[in-house]
Amino acid sequence: MKPTILTKPMRKWAWLFLGPMLVCFGIGFVWPFLHGTYLSFCRFLLVRDAEWIGGGNYAAAFSDPSFRSAFGFTAVFAVVSVILINIPAFAAALALNRKFRGRNLYRAVFFMPNLIGGIVLGHLWSMIFDGILAGFGTSILLDAKLGFWGMIIVLLWQQVGYMMIIYIAGLQAIPADMMEAAEIDGASGSQKLFRIIIPNMMPAITICLFLTLTNGFKLFDQNLALTAGQPFIQQADGTTVRTTEMLALNIYNTFYSQGPSNRGIAQAKAVIFFVTVAGISLIQLVATRRKEVQQ
């Protein structure tokens, strides 16, 4: 069969099949992104009345101490959450990949928290933390450290199960003959883990690291519901530092501050935020992709 018999109609109809997706992508991502970038150079109350002012919003965003503080807090949060989500998720995947009774039930139970929305989770855990911390005469809203670890716990609870499912899929894709050969060759448990399982699971690791890193950076719902940035520290110069405010919440709070100048600044912050998260995750994708092996 000549290849043209297949490629000709494919070429002819490709746009029909690609079209709807491209339209959706254009409406849902490309246009808002371009418009958002344009707005970051504008001053506006309503989007339709935006007025071009140049790069002033970026200067204001960079000189805002609350933005810098949120940036630092978010970066630390993202790194800690990546480590603390992926290690337990990987361990749980290894454990639940063995054959035993009730294995599927365990998998389902681990996965379930992921089905609950972030705001609901935040409020539920707020009550749990409150119940515990009240006994010690404190609250998650009174100490930035408690706020930080509180959000980490909620995120772990929500995401470990999800990453575990991805790792299980990765584990099951490892060819059985490879493992068998290793066993026959007398490889120890750690040798199997580091020489066979992990190298073969790099695609799953790439995905999980990407998801947890970006989720850590983008966290909003749980932040809003659990601490809303509290506790605040009033500084000597009159400015306020919201000690547990993450980037997305900082952008949100800026956008909905009164006065039209703040919306453009928030928009500029959002563009900086996007570039940072996209840049970091691309570096991570390239770095881990290189380690992926051909099976």
Partner: peptide, 20 residues
Amino acid sequence: QPNTDQYRAGLVSALNRYCA
């Protein structure tokens, strides 16, 4: 009250500490 929501959020945070 200027920038009402943000101003009040600052008051709430400080009152939380005081109430504790």
